[in-house]
């Protein structure tokens, strides 16, 4: 606290301070570390310390009883030879990519639409946001019942679902996972796009209209480029959520059939809380952290998000 207020006091005492204070912003000192302390302590206690413990655990054998036994690289070498682990990483990436590809276009279109001034827009938007208010667990239980092959929708629409074995075949089981996540999370991203679309200056559209640009050209040449930073933000949220997808897998497919929908997060849970192999589970967790960091690093680099170019240049 004292470090934060000190520069302000100084600026009054020192000669020439008045001149400096006139320029906006210069009188306020750079916030000291103390301001970050509460957040840093929280982050340290609930993220860094557990992470360090997980690193330690990943080199041990521990079933939760007694004390962990040091096992050297055993977990890691087993993990790298484990076909289910490799498969689970691919499934995590696949679920993430599919999630982004399906959710992004829907969210952008809905968001841009919801930013407009049509009649009924507010009412329809409000209804559309309802899934966001439901817990993902409840949503998963609900869809499991709706998709029951004998008593749910598939039994009434055989032309579409065949024998209704949605959860017994990999492709359709993955499809259900992507669909349910989309149903649940599209409203959140729609909200982001709605806000961003509202912030686009009207003058751009007016100028385009004068130049004779139609609705489609306006959308592709003004709206989309203006939403650039939001697309990146939203995609990063989707990627982080996608890589750690767990609740839907737990309730809808339990990783099945076989291991066909066992993504890394669910595999970690199985190892820890079904097989009580906490050492192995910690190694999986770390691998997931590494992969997720790598993916977000690549994304930040490729998108130029780190430089945060303004979309307002030239306006």
């Amino acid at each position: 606290m004292t470090t934060a207020t000190a520069p302000a006091v100084d600026s009054v005492e020192k000669p020439g301070a008045r001149e400096r204070a006139k320029r906006p912003g210069t009188g306020v000192g750079r916030p000291g570390f103390a301001w970050a302390a509460p957040a840093a302590v929280f982050f340290g206690l609930f993220a860094l310390v557990p992470l360090a413990l997980v690193v330690v655990l990943s080199f041990t054998r521990w079933n939760g009883l007694g004390s962990p036994e040091f096992a050297g690289l055993e977990n890691w070498s087993k993990l790298l030879d484990d076909p289910v682990m490799v498969k689970s990483l691919w499934l995590s990436l696949l679920l993430t990519v599919l999630g982004v590809l399906v959710q992004t276009p829907i969210s952008i279109l809905l968001g841009v639409w919801a930013a407009g001034h049509q009649r009924n827009r507010a009412v329809l938007s409000a209804i559309y946001f309802v899934p966001l208010l439901l817990s993902i667990t409840a949503v998963s239980v609900l869809w499991r019942a709706v998709l029951d092959p004998n008593f749910g929708v598939p039994s009434q629409a055989k032309w579409l679902f065949g024998d209704g074995n949605l959860f017994g075949v990999q492709a359709s089981a993955l499809g259900v996972l992507v669909f349910v996540s989309t149903w649940q999370f599209t409203p959140l991203h729609t909200l982001l796009y709605q806000g961003a679309a509202r912030a686009i200056p009207q003058v751009l559209y007016q100028a385009a209209q004068i130049d004779g640009a139609g609705r489609y050209r306006q959308f592709f040449h003004i709206t989309l480029p203006q939403l650039r930073n939001t697309i990146i933000t939203s995609t990063i949220l989707m990627v982080v959520g996608g890589l750690t997808t767990f609740d839907t897998v737990l309730i809808l497919t339990q990783g099945g059939p076989g291991t066909d929908t066992t993504n890394s997060a669910y595999y970690m849970y199985q190892k820890a809380f079904k097989s009580f192999d906490f050492g192995m589970a910690s190694a999986i967790a770390l691998l997931l952290v590494l992969v997720a960091s790598l993916v977000s690093l690549v994304m930040v680099r490729l998108s130029g998000y780190d430089k945060m170019r303004s979309t307002m240049e030239g306006v």
Partner: peptide, 18 residues
Amino acid sequence: FGTNYDSVKFTDGGSPAL
């Protein structure tokens, strides 16, 4: 067992209902 048994559960009442 038919063809779609992997999409049916006992725990949510699916198979007893059948």
